[in-house]
């Protein structure tokens, strides 16, 4: 989790038919968070879909996505090394809490059980391994989802309004945890949001989309 990574977005242009949805040129260094702000319908989620490798075939995209100098845009989603944190925690309902964390661990990791236990302790959920994720509170679920993402050892992280559905009193605390851990891991992150407070807590540069 320590090797620093760098994400470069070079002359990205996404269009639908003849209509240009968004244009972007940016560089995100290790541990940095770039915030992309904009109202709904401004193409934020299309940008994330493109970077993660899920762009619907109706859209056309130009430009290069360089992760540590390598262009990942031709790669399938699972080979990109792009982690994604959704609006909802999306813990797999058929797996236990530990099963969810294990799902993220790469196959080559040897001491899986130990890693999972350590990760749970790190987010204050030691002893929760066998719990049904449906019995966790909203904040606990969000923390497990974050830890699952980090265990999958991504090279960069995309955040899709991950705090918008949390209670206001949890939001600030969760933002701190997320940004601290991402910084500590040296991951370049791209946060998409329409909440100005998110951007302020992220502390990095900010780009506004307005369409």
């Amino acid at each position: 989790m320590t090797a620093p990574h760098r994400l470069e977005l070079r002359d990205i242009c996404i269009s639908l038919g003849s209509q240009v949805l968004l244009e972007l040129d940016a560089e995100i260094g290790p541990g940095e968070v770039l915030t992309v702000m904009g109202p709904s319908g401004s193409g934020k989620s299309t940008l994330l879909a493109y970077l993660a490798g899920f762009l619907a075939p109706d859209f056309q995209a130009r430009g290069q996505v360089l992760l540590d100098g390598q262009d990942i845009s031709p790669l399938p989603a699972e080979k990109r090394g792009m982690g994604l944190l959704f609006q909802d925690p999306l813990l797999f309902p058929h797996l236990s809490v530990a099963g969810n964390l294990r799902f993220g661990l790469p196959r080559s990791v040897a001491d899986k059980a130990q890693r999972v236990e350590g990760a749970l302790a790190q987010i204050g959920l030691a002893g929760f391994a066998d719990r049904d994720p449906a019995t966790l509170s909203g904040g606990q679920k969000a923390r497990v989802a974050l830890m699952r993402l980090l265990l999958s050892a991504p090279c960069a992280v995309l955040l899709d309004e991950p705090f918008s559905k949390l209670d206001t009193n949890l939001r600030h605390e969760m933002r701190q945890l997320v940004f601290d851990l991402l910084r500590e891991a040296g991951l370049p992150s791209l946060l998409v949001t329409h909440d100005r407070e998110d951007a302020e807590d992220a502390g990095g540069r900010m780009i506004e989309l307005n369409h």
Binding site: A77, E78, L84, L90, F103, S152, A153
Partner: peptide, 20 residues
């Protein structure tokens, strides 16, 4: 989103099908 999530966690498409 479930399958997308599995893929961004590094699971192959087949693994996403069988496990998720």
């Amino acid at each position: 989103r479930w399958s997308r999530l599995a893929l961004t966690l590094g699971a192959s498409r087949n693994r996403a099908f069988w496990r998720v």
